[in-house]
Write a protein that binds this DNA or RNA. Structure first.
Length: 671
DNA sequence: AGCACGCCGACT
DNA sequence: GTCGGCGTGCTC
């Protein structure tokens, strides 16, 4: 007996949709993309989304749909396909991917109607206009606009040196995309940059557009984690209906329900916050945007002064269009001079040249930024005799030495746990502990000692909440020196800064991560970009003990392309991305032996199932223990073309149920 | 995700 | 002897 059957997926960690019978009274109005309420398990029911409808004879008794919630599909066909694509691209469960696309705030009461009134975001005055662009800006706008007008998928790397004026290019091409009548997406890194950008856009993006009442800019919506439920709903529905024309936001904004996307821009495309590594699905906004643009026939622009090696390689290979902007907009001062200087022989943070450079800025009433890669005072406590290191008992990672209100403490940078400072070795008992190594707190205390009267501010993760205030005070000249971690190097514009000193360029470089060199070069070039942005020439000093390292040399020469060529060669040799795809499997559980056993067995079956891949491990993670669980991980290196095989093999793994398995495709996080 | 069913410690 | 801990399995 044939009946109508609906495939319904739930926003739960389930890997496929389930079949339900459709009661005849629902059949006429029910369509894919609509939300329904359906029974699941013995005594519960959930809201799910209809993926398909078919007329067939069920091979068993099916439960029936209880209620239809929407009058119009809440998710477009594109969004339904996107959830399936996410699941297969990231080896994730369909339900988890669906949950990503369905904001909880959509609510169940009203149901979704296409005609829903959406509150439009406030517009602003039209742009100042008449802006003189550099020749390369003009050329970039011209060629990208041509692509946008072609109304077909294409993707481009906008490779512009720091201060080459990428923002102006973004604004103009977004305006171009809006002229075609469609929507635009502007993705920004997570760190506090989105608000000023949003204000800028609201003010300028709307000018000179047809199709709306004169002088009325198109709604530009900010998508933000701190948005209230009401605003979220408004933005979501507004994009779905087409009333909202531009969405600005961090990573998760790439999952918004566009009706007619014409342009997606990723600013600072190498920024790692575009990869979700915290919880499944572990998606990358860059991949998602490229995939969606392909379906919409939209244009993707990846902007950066220091592109990810992934994008650099694709541009090199012709898979991404390449648009270069080699000159600074403010001309005059040119790129800052980068000099490599040596670290002090023993102990201290400052070599002679760096101290003198800071003193010189103080004399000239200019400002300096000093960058350090570690917060806290000094490194971990290590025994000079036997090498014992004081570790967090929960995470088994080294404690970091901090100065706090009541004196010195040891702190775990993973879980925040603190402990007293040991006065002797925990293994051999000798009172011969070494606290060398450099943290932001120590740099502050040392520069104050070296240059009495110097006004110093510090910005790192221990100063969260005060970031804006610190930023404002430094800009207003309340301090001569800003000491900070890379948080302090992020995209800010301080006109009076003419010196950026990197106190220890080596620490990032020596991280046990295949991206360490790439990150270091990106960070140093970013940092250099902070110096001399206005009319005063800037200088960058890098303190290092390995001045001949290719990454340091590339920064000194300002040769990012040279660095990428060399780095890509190394990645090919070692089969790391982008030369190979990487899949990380993390096994965790309460019994160390069971976890290790599962990881070992899995490694073996993966090696057998996909012989062309390379399986590294099992190895204990950097966090051997976390929240009471033991952890082991495996890395699978495989050709991009072999990923389906790898995923199939991964899904066939059957670790004991006491062992949990997480699968992260293209991971950035190896903790 | 949640909820039911399953086997081991401290209670009337 | 049982009440209940949460580890494990299942949801069309």
């Amino acid at each position: 007996m044939e009946t109508w059957i609906a495939e319904v997926a739930f926003p739960l960690p389930l890997d496929k949709p389930y079949d339900y019978s459709v009661p005849p009274e629902f059949r006429p109005r029910l369509r894919p993309g609509m939300r329904v309420r359906a029974p699941l398990g013995p005594r519960r029911s959930f809201v799910g989304v209809v993926f398909s409808l078919r007329l067939a004879a069920p091979d068993r008794e099916l439960k029936g749909i209880e209620a239809v919630i929407d009058d119009e599909p809440a998710l477009s066909e594109e969004m339904l396909e996107l959830s399936g694509w996410l699941a297969s691209r990231y080896c994730a469960r369909l339900g988890e991917c669906l949950r990503l696309l369905l904001p909880g705030v959509l609510g169940e009461k009203g149901g979704f109607r296409l005609r829903t009134e959406s509150r439009e975001a406030p517009g602003g005055p039209p742009p100042a206009g008449g802006f003189e662009m550099t020749p390369s800006q003009a050329a970039a706008v011209e060629s990208l606009s041509r692509e946008i007008r072609a109304r077909a998928f294409s993707a481009h790397l906008l490779f512009g040196v720091p201060a080459s004026g990428k923002t102006e290019v973004y604004l103009r091409i977004i305006r171009e995309a809006l002229k075609t009548g469609g929507q635009a997406l502007f993705l920004v890194p997570e760190i506090s940059l989105s608000l000023p950008f949003f204000e800028h856009f609201a003010r300028t993006a709307g000018g000179g557009l047809g199709g709306r009442a004169a002088g009325q800019p198109p709604p530009v919506a900010l998508w933000h984690s701190q948005l209230g439920a009401r605003e979220r709903r408004g933005v979501w529905l507004g994009l779905r209906s087409g009333a909202v024309r531009v969405a600005v936001g961090p990573r998760s904004a790439c999952l918004l329900p566009f009706k007619d996307l014409r342009l997606a821009v990723l600013d600072e495309e190498q920024d790692e916050s575009f990869k979700q590594d915290g919880k499944a699905p572990y998606y990358h906004a860059r991949d998602v945007v490229l995939e969606r643009a392909r379906r919409f026939g939209a244009v993707v622009v990846l902007g950066s002064a220091t592109p990810s090696l992934e994008s650099w390689e694709r541009a090199e290979a012709g898979a991404l269009g390449l648009v270069r902007m080699p000159e600074r907009v403010w001309g005059g001062t040119g790129a800052p001079a980068v000099r490599i200087v040596s670290k002090p022989a023993a102990g201290g943070c400052f070599g002679l040249e760096l101290v003198e450079a800071v003193r010189e800025r103080l004399r000239r009433r200019e400002q300096s930024i000093l960058l350090v890669n570690r917060r806290g005072f000094s490194n971990f406590a290590i025994c000079r005799r036997c090498g014992w290191v004081s570790r967090c008992p929960d995470c088994e990672v080294a404690f970091i030495h901090h100065r706090e209100e009541g004196g010195f403490r040891m702190r775990c940078h993973h879980c925040g746990r603190s402990a007293g400072v040991p006065d002797s070795c925990g293994k051999c008992g000798r009172p011969d502990l070494n606290f060398s190594g450099i943290g932001t707190q120590r740099v502050v205390s040392e520069i104050r000692r070296l240059l009495p009267g110097l006004r110093v501010l510090r910005m790192d993760r221990d100063s969260v909440g005060e970031d804006d205030a610190i930023h404002r005070r430094f800009r207003d000249g309340e301090a001569d020196v800003l000491v900070g971690t890379k948080l302090a190097a992020k995209g800010f514009h301080f006109p009076r800064v003419t010196l950026v000193g990197v106190v220890d360029a080596d620490t990032l470089l020596q991280m046990p991560d295949f991206r360490a060199a790439e990150r270091t070069v990106q960070f140093l070039i970013q940092a250099a970009g902070r110096s001399g942005r206005a009319e005063m020439p800037g200088q960058v000093l890098l303190q290092t003990s390995i001045p001949t390292h290719y990454a340091i040399q590339a920064v000194a020469r300002g040769d990012y392309d040279g660095f990428c060529r060399r780095e890509l060669g190394l990645r090919k040799e070692l089969r790391y991305p982008p030369a190979s795809a990487l899949v990380r499997l993390v096994f965790s559980g309460k019994t160390a032996s069971a976890v290790r056993g599962a990881a070992e067995a899995s490694a073996e079956s993966l090696r057998k199932a996909v012989p062309s891949s390379e399986v590294v491990g099992p190895a204990p993670g950097i966090l051997k223990k976390f929240a009471g669980s033991f952890r082991f991980h495996l890395l699978v290196k495989a050709g991009e073309a072999c990923l389906p095989e790898v995923f199939q093999a991964v899904k066939a793994l059957a670790p004991p149920s006491s062992v949990r398995l997480k699968v992260n495709v293209d991971p950035y996080d190896f903790v």
